[in-house]
Design a protein around this nucleic acid. Structure first.
Lengths: 333, 333
DNA sequence: AAAATTTGCTGAAACCTTTCACTTCTGATC
DNA sequence: GATCAGAAGTGAAAGGTTTCAGCAAATTTT
């Protein structure tokens, strides 16, 4: 069943049916009603595949994130989705799960679907595949990740965020500080670590006073596992405070620390990153570095739309938000 | 650029290119290599829209959930996605946000895209739109929601879960118990409430010993707001324990209770529902009713595939999982 | 009244893939 | 040497939408 059937039933040409669907104002009201009636009677539903084929591009944008299980990304996704919806675009949420292959897989998929555009938080570097997609005319905006002039991006100053977190710990009197996060191939992680180092230097603390514990992933389970590593350290090397690269890690570590009957922040102060909703509701409310999640999504989507509309004369832009430290009990007993 | 260009470059017919793409074994190795080479040289990417148009249905399934911000649903989504991936299907995650209109919107969208199938946790009743989609030949499986014989569904016994939760509170000596959840139009909520009532009856407690507080949504903010309502109750009416219809509510309420300097479970015992990862990491580790989230997703996807393959002779099935009570400190000081 | 413009509608062409009936060729069998 | 079977490849048709040049009628302008 197709526009042809609708046209037959309404006694008009198929071109007119298409006009009713896409430019109703160009059709005489009487005709329009007749067509609408036929559509209703036949239960006609537009075939999006045919539309796309004809149009050459779809009305779907792909949002590729590192972890849908992380509330940071779902909040970001909400911002994207709301903004996209206003332009009649839908969002397909893809979970790369920190995995290069999955990322690659989703990129191919989006390319085959002739996605309207792609928002991506890359697992590692910006790959050749991404470059190729961009060159083929599909707008690509980097999310939660800075970029060079040759690409649009929306990010939060991760280095500064790391600095904020560690400077705060230092101001609380800590001198041996741990950094928990990984893999280092994730840009956000290495930037936050760089910020941590910078804060140490500013306070004239020795390089090796920052104990770096690399985790395989940025999730709650990895955070819990970190408890063992910390406990295994000789007391004089063991940090009195840690900065976790995200809240999931921090919550996991917090949970494990309490399980070991240690006090937070007494025995170990903890700072997280992202300030997800659960951070405030945790065993000990978590000090965290807040990022404007929804705004980030909105800004990214707006950049994408801008790039899509000004196809040629588009000037790539890099938007950088500033993070904010939210102090709670996990660092101030 | 299309198969035609590839064919021209490789010096074969377009039918052969298609064969290389879809049934490589039917093409002589030499020819196959030549075609592959041409594909690489031209950077050819299959047009999914054209495939779909030809095939009549897409390779995408829609998963419509009530709240992507709820880890329960993202865990469920992971189960769905993994299982779908094995059959070469992709998943588009749609967030109805407890809103009828949004649900309707997404259903239309999926219908226009000729989705391979739909997994949905309906906001309210099973609507005429859903029926229509099913009749049009698209498999629809209800998720986290039971159904009649006329439809496939995968659910968890919510009534029993409610019973477990409240029976546990009663066993801890509580006699005035609160139920927090809403809106009641959400099936899971009313079922869990029904279970709560059943538990009260079994213990010979009066009907009005169960104080029902209806919330507008099932999120952390609504949970926090419930603190006010509880505080406003006269002491002799105020429950000593509450059962929250999900963990987000429970975490919100927990947070607010602690803010008021009350003790959990001393002044108020709290049971949640879902046992999301954050439940164990909260201020006071939360007693909760665990649901097999990933399994739920997997089972739903399998039912969908079954329904899709046996189009005609398909016998609708209803799978019901049993929930499990996980006791933690929020109910056992 | 004639000319010009606007309005309303038509229908063929294009978008790209897959399928399938068909042809051609190679090698084997009797 | 004729017949047959199988392998390899061909190319037209179908699938549903949108666009656009073009046509006829109605309306306005000269």
């Amino acid at each position: 069943m197709s526009v042809v059937d609708v046209a037959a039933r309404a006694g008009v040409s198929l071109g007119t049916v298409s006009n009713v669907l896409n430019r109703p104002d160009r059709v005489a009201p009487a005709t329009r009603d007749r067509v609408m009636q036929a559509i209703r009677e036949l239960g006609f539903v537009r075939n999006e595949a045919a539309r796309q084929l004809r149009a050459g591009r779809s009305r779907t944008i792909g949002l590729v994130v590192l972890d849908v299980g992380n509330p940071f990304f779902t909040d970001l996704a909400k911002g994207v989705e709301t903004t996209a919806g206003k332009s009649g675009l839908s969002v397909i949420l893809c979970n790369s799960n920190d995995d290069d292959d999955r990322e690659q897989h989703y990129l191919s998929l989006l390319q085959e679907q002739r996605a309207f555009g792609i928002l991506i938080t890359p697992v590692g570097k910006v790959t050749a595949a991404m470059e190729a997609i961009r060159r083929s005319g599909t707008p690509v905006v980097l999310v939660d990740r800075g970029s060079t002039r040759r690409q649009c991006s929306v990010s939060v100053n991760d280095r500064y965020g790391g600095e904020l977190a560690v400077a705060h710990l230092i101001s609380q009197g800590h001198k041996r500080i741990g950094f928990v996060g990984g893999p280092m191939s994730i840009n956000q992680v290495s930037e936050r670590l760089a910020g941590a180092h910078a804060a140490m230097r500013s306070a004239d603390l020795a390089e090796d006073s920052l104990v770096v514990i690399e985790t395989p992933r940025l999730d709650v389970a990895s955070g819990r596992a970190t408890g063992d590593e910390l406990a295994a350290l000789p007391a004089r090397r063991r940090p009195t405070a840690v900065f976790c690269a995200n809240d999931l890690l921090a919550l996991g570590l917090l949970q494990d620390t309490i399980r070991r009957q240690k006090s937070v922040p007494g025995d170990l102060a903890i700072v997280g990153y992202d300030d997800i909703d659960f951070a405030a509701a945790s065993a000990v409310p978590l000090t965290s570095v807040r990022q404007p999640r929804a705004q980030l999504g909105q800004a990214a989507m707006e950049l994408l739309l801008e790039e899509a509309s000004l196809a040629d004369g588009h000037q790539h832009r890099q938007i950088v938000f500033e993070p904010e430290l939210v102090v709670r009990e996990s660092t101030t007993g």
